[in-house]
Design a protein around this nucleic acid. Structure first.
Length: 554
RNA sequence: GCGAGCGUAGUGUAGUGGUUAUCACCGGGCGUUGCCAACGCCUGAACCCGGGUUCGAGUCCCGGCGCUCGCACCA
């Protein structure tokens, strides 16, 4: 039995039982789009809940929700318009598509920075050969954007926009409201769970690369100058597999990794610990988790450190989480693009007082005397020491030389007190690919056991993500057992957070098997004894053991 | 995007131009059955879409869509 055959059987089961289905299948389907069916939908929402719960435990994070439709300017400021566009060209001989900038790398120091026309001209001039067939004839260069284009508004008043490629930008553009919410105190975080969109050239491998995907991101804002005090001791007993910057995997604790500088920021380390806990809580096999550090050239240019949580499954090691220390890049970019400030204030331990005792200009005389240069003269004069004698010959910033007489100046004596300063916070971002995580939850839960000489399928979900919490069966649908079972089922469903499933068709063994196949942790069976003493059997999925319990104790 | 292979009930499949499309599991109903895919009877459900060749196409050809893999792209 090979892994591929296991994967085929798993995929068949996922379709048959309503976990995951190709979207819009009756219309022929659409690549890179998946439905979560009646069973999968419930798993998705439980994984999302579990994710929120894990990060809310930090105590200083909030959940927000921003639109998926995003104006052009936002994603231009963030760098996505530039980064998510590739300029492609096609070989006229073999039709192989290539990136124009890649082809031109030998001929230009930084072709990535060139505009379309420049690429087109350089391509015509240098005539690089096709890596596939060796010919040197290229089609027109076209921009291939990996974001979905749209127009916000109709007609001439419509303006360009995109479906967001990540949720993060909403957290950055909302920074000031968040800052106020947290009483202007760092650190704090904002997170959201939602959809992201990338118009992938070639979606592959089932749920691994999708065009519309579920993501969950936290932006955690910190003061880069205040010493982090992250407590890493909770993970001191669980060393993790780390793959530092292109080196071999090592198993070490987060504390040790921080002390040795392998992980460059303790908050990144703490988030790796929380990520590991979360993955374990949703049922990922911890032996198949590792954290891989981005190598220097792989890391986005703004990132200061980046660790991916990779999970091993049917498709090998897949990146499912990225934990990036992004510095001040994002807030700074939005500041630059909008002219608005996105800053936090840092109070000094002691107010900083500066005593100035020197010269400044006397506006009433210097103004008329120096006219347009008066401002520059002021700067030059204020830079002079107190013992300067006037008249003095000064060279201004613009290179002009002026003579400043005693009538143009007056003593400048004042005390400037500063109690703090404004700065752009740094941000640490854990970003989760929820679909990829759900895939691995399913992959790791899928067990093919043997029972009475036949393959027996069980999804060994943890209760935290099990799509159905409990199933209720009447032993037979008669003698009132069906009515009692239906009543228990309704009562369980009415309970917040509990989802029950009633199943009365087929033999009892078949119903247990059906419940096991979608990973229901417990099954309740109503039998003849129930009608006499009000007890039912409670059967455990993984042990098969049955307990007799009163209905009220469920 | 390029190349190769593939597309038949819910799932897995048989079917090399000729009746009513095979088989299994599956689903539903009724009955038997005192708890782990049981049995009997009844029953449900498919040739991806469009065009072409042909007296006749699930089968051959072309195009589209989808799936898998490789290359490329991408995180």
């Amino acid at each position: 039995m090979t892994d591929e055959e296991r994967l085929d059987r798993l995929n068949g089961m996922l379709k048959r039982r309503g976990f995951l289905l190709p979207s819009f299948e009756i219309h022929g389907g659409s690549k890179g789009l998946y439905d979560f069916g009646p069973v999968g939908g419930r798993i998705r929402s439980k994984v999302n809940q579990e994710w929120l719960h894990h990060w809310l435990k930090l105590g200083n994070v909030v959940e927000i929700s921003c639109p998926t439709v995003t104006p052009y300017a936002v994603l231009e400021a963030s760098g996505h318009v530039g980064e998510f566009s590739d300029f492609m060209t096609q070989c006229m001989a073999c039709e192989e598509a290539s990136r124009a900038d890649t082809l031109l790398e030998p001929y230009h120091p930084n072709p990535d920075a060139l505009k379309r026309d420049d690429l087109q001209n350089l391509l015509a001039q240098e005539e690089p050969v096709c890596p596939a067939c060796g010919e040197a004839s290229w089609s027109e260069v076209v921009a291939q954007n990996l974001m979905f284009n749209t127009t916000i508004g109709a007609g001439a008043s419509g303006r360009p926009g995109f479906l967001r490629p990540e949720t993060a930008q909403g957290m950055f553009t909302s920074f000031n409201a968040l800052y106020r919410h947290f009483r202007e105190r760092l650190p704090f975080g904002a997170m959201q769970v939602g959809k992201g969109y990338r118009n992938e050239i070639s979606p592959r491998q089932g749920m691994i690369r999708l065009r519309e995907f579920n993501m969950a991101e936290l932006e955690y804002f910190i003061d880069p100058e205040s010493a982090p005090n992250d407590d890493l001791t909770p993970w001191d007993t669980t060393p993790l597999w780390l793959v530092p910057d292109g080196k071999s995997p090592v198993k070490m604790t987060l504390s040790a990794a921080c002390q040795q500088g392998v992980i460059r920021h303790s908050t990144v380390a703490r988030f790796m610990g929380i990520t590991h806990e979360f993955l374990e809580a949703v049922g990922i096999d911890t032996k198949r988790i590792r954290f891989r550090q981005h190598e220097g050239d792989e890391m986005a240019h703004y990132a200061m450190d980046c660790w991916d949580a990779e999970i091993e499954g049917s498709y090998g090691w897949i990146e499912c989480v990225g934990i990036a220390h992004r510095g001040c890049y994002d807030l700074e970019s939005h500041e630059r693009a909008t002219g608005k400030t996105l800053r936090a204030r840092r109070e000094f331990d002691e107010p900083r007082t500066t005593v100035i005792d020197a010269w400044t200009i006397d506006g009433s005389t210097a103004g008329p005397a120096f006219k347009a240069n008066a401002g520059l003269v002021k700067i030059a004069v204020e830079a002079l020491s107190k013992d300067t004698d006037f008249p003095a010959t000064l060279t201004l910033e613009n290179g002009e030389v002026v003579v400043v007489g005693p009538e143009h100046v007056k003593p400048n004596k004042k005390t400037v007190k500063e109690t703090g300063e404004w700065f752009i916070p740094h941000v640490i971002e854990p970003a989760f690919g929820i679909d990829r995580i759900i895939w691995h939850v399913i992959d790791h839960a899928y067990a093919e056991l043997e029972k009475n000489g036949e393959t027996y399928t069980v999804m060994q979900f943890t209760p935290a993500v099990a799509p159905v919490d409990i199933a209720v069966f009447p032993l037979y649908e008669k003698d009132g057992m069906d009515a009692t079972a239906a009543e228990i089922h309704r009562r369980l469903c009415a309970r917040t957070g509990t989802f029950s499933m009633y199943d009365g068709s087929g033999s009892i063994g078949r119903r247990y098997a059906r419940a096991d196949e979608i990973g229901i942790p417990q099954c309740v069976t109503v039998d003849h004894q129930t009608l006499e003493d009000g007890t039912v059997t409670l059967r455990d999925r993984d042990t098969g053991k049955q307990l007799r319990v009163p209905i009220d104790r469920l």
